[in-house]
């Protein structure tokens, strides 16, 4: 059921989380209890239409952006800032498959914190990562094919990442659509793999910048 808040300005009733008071039309603070999906009006899940995300993002910006509140009072300006900060955070989180996956694992209560270990605990995966690293180390950065070799390695890694995204997406789908809790364990495992691969890509990109 929708909760009712009081408009801070005219003290009329406002459905919690509504952006503007229906009576006096003044901006309301964002509802901290809404998660990013709810805030964007999207169904929680891994598969989302990025075009819709973009459109909602733009529309909300056009409602709440601080530029539109420059000549208003201090409270209204603060709420506008809070909305847009919230909006930017949600957009950033949902847009990228890795952060979206990590966020979903929190929202579903599967795990509170994203693990921060520098090396994976699964020995087989550790070996896999080390092989990638070795290939990267073996690129002779002074050699004349270095830029091309890095690009090829990057393309291969991107394919690997794409495959991870598909697998973790299936895991989330199993939970959200099929109601199977073990889907989340699969999703978590592959989200972790994606995180290590993303770190590897960052390292690779830092090396590639030498050839920019």
């Amino acid at each position: 059921m929708n909760r009712v808040d009081v408009c801070w300005s005219c003290r009329g009733g406002v459905v919690a989380g509504e952006g503007f008071c229906p009576t006096c039309r003044v901006i309301q603070p964002p509802d901290p209890r809404r998660d990013h999906f709810h805030y964007f009006g999207l169904n929680p899940g891994f598969d989302l239409d990025l075009g819709v995300l973009d459109t909602v993002y733009r529309q909300r910006q056009q409602q709440f952006h601080p530029d539109l509140f420059v000549s208003r009072g201090a409270t209204e300006r603060r709420y506008s800032m809070e909305h847009v900060t919230r909006l930017n955070e949600g957009y950033r989180t949902l847009k990228d498959p890795l952060t979206r996956g990590e966020y979903l694992l929190k929202v579903t209560g599967f795990r509170e914190q994203t693990p921060e270990n520098a090396t994976p605990s699964d020995p087989a995966f550790l070996l896999e990562i080390m092989e990638w690293r070795e290939t990267l180390e073996e690129v002779d950065l002074k050699g004349k094919n270095a830029a091309m070799q890095l690009q090829q390695l990057r393309d291969r890694m991107m394919e690997t990442c794409d495959a991870e995204v598909v697998t973790l997406g299936k895991g989330f789908h199993d939970w959200f659509v099929g109601g199977k809790r073990e889907g989340l364990a699969v999703a978590a495992q592959h989200t972790d793999r994606l995180r290590y691969f993303t770190r590897f890509l960052d390292e690779l990109d830092r090396k590639s910048e030498l050839f920019f």
Partner: peptide
């Protein structure tokens, strides 16, 4: 200026409240 902006908002809010309720 700030006082005037706030006064304007409160008057507008009160007016809306009266029309509604």
């Amino acid at each position: 200026h700030e006082a005037k902006v706030e006064a304007e908002r409160v008057l507008s809010a009160a007016g809306a409240a009266l029309r509604e309720d």
